[in-house]
Amino acid sequence: MSYDKFSILISPAVPLPIENVDTDQIIPARFLKAVERKGFGDNLFRDWRYDRNDQPKSDFVLNNPLYAGKILVGGKNFGSGSSREHAAWAIYDYGFRVVVSSFFADIFKNNALNNGLLPVVVSPDFLQKIFDTIEKDPTAAFKVDLQAQTFTIVATGESAAFEINPYKKHCLLNGLDDIDYLVSLKEKIARFENQRL
């Protein structure tokens, strides 16, 4: 999948202080029927965002005009459950470029990285600090620097380093995906197959 290159992002953040946000909440199964990768953002957090009559629920953060931005901050174990990549597509399509949590489910993390959505893991304490900062000032800005691998609360300058696999970092910085690389290995793959016969 092609996606935009990522380098530095400065943006306010949207808080979702709930643990174990599973991919069924991020995008419910009934919205997985598309055969193209389009429009998933409309149904992001569908059942938390809209009531049964498709009216926005005023108590859900995405419907609260106070909060906006390209960074989504979630509670621990974000993205658990189903492997549906639609979850990463929906978050990206909605306009987020970064998801922050103290802990991500494995498949979600891979899916996010494969789609130009940067998962940033911070310590539980720092995560709480981010939530507190947003609570005090919903417009507070955060800076994500992929090259330096840092996440910074702009107002206070407090910063946390985050880990990312160097290969995936390279891909994100350059907007590359894995398929071209794998296809370039075809001969080697064929040799491997022959050796095993």
Binding site: I107, N111, I179, L185, K186, I189
Partner: peptide
């Protein structure tokens, strides 16, 4: 795996 990875396997068996 996710759909991007399904594409990887279809394209390269890896």
């Amino acid at each position: 795996i996710g759909t991007s990875e399904v594409e990887m396997v279809l394209a390269s068996q890896c």
